[in-house]
Amino acid sequence: MQRFVILLAALLALAPAPLAPAWAQDTLLNVSYDPTRELYRAVNDAFAKAYQAESGRRVAIRTSHGGSGAQARAVLDGLEADVVTLAVASDIDAIAAKGLLAKNWATRLPDDSTPFTSTIVLLVRAGNPKQVKDWPDLIRPGIAVITPNPKTSGGARWNYLAALAWAMRQPGATEASGEEFLRKLFANVPVLDTGARGATNTFVQRGMGDVLIAWENEAMLAQQELGPGKFDVVYPSLSIRAEPPVAVVDSVVDKRGSRAAAEAYLRFLYTKPAQEIAARNHYRPRDTEVAARHAAEFPAIPMVGITEFGGWDKAQAAHFADGGVFDRIFAKGR
């Protein structure tokens, strides 16, 4: 009987071995957030080719997708991510706070380590039957708004801040009026999915709601994949520049000896081919030349940055932490 326990222990200890690839090649694990599946599938193929041409080494990239917060937690709990590509900087900050990567990670790559950007838009049903044109329309009675839970979804945090940015730019706006706007907005939300993709599915597949607040790339992808002509994208009068950051996880790459490949992978994101892939997947490229080529697809609208809210540190603590504004919205008036 004891022998059996030993056998079990041995089995458990040996188990990781068959999971490691048998042939010699570099492997990278990219732990990413929900709507980037299609993007990184294309990027990974392109990078593998470019990397082999350049260094002569083969590289296989695996990806893991989930809610941005959940993914950060998994990395903190020991998921061996070589690179993290998450929805909001605060999630990478949380990993850095535990010492897994340098605190100054954002400065190690151009543009605050955000190789492409996006913004927050409104997706409505074809012909816009409820005449949703801008943020104030979302708090009208009888409008059902779909947005995910900012506690679990990075995209939802951008949605929330974009709405708040508009409310705070209104004449005579105060913190109280901003909070009141959000309270009315969330009173119109019938379903709070845990991730951006879940919210899109609820809106598009399940037919719930009149308007979906979503990443621009997510809205365009949904339109393209699920029903051309069934949905319209509405650009609000003001939105937020959503900057999903990328970083190499120092402690993991140093342990695995994969730093060179990991850094090459992230640098590749800034190259023209990768920027082109990003643009085709509806992310706004940083590269001016690529951006110019796709200018027609990405209307220029007024956008605020996260600095409007004092950076992610402050925004996270004020709005999304336990007892923050989001909790207050739900504590009151329900």
Partner: peptide
Amino acid sequence: IFIAGNMPNRTEIAPLLIVIRLEQLD
């Protein structure tokens, strides 16, 4: 979680709240 609306105070079940807390590193 698929069928509940997951709205705090109304349709948010306790196991989901556990997951949410976990994701906030709490």
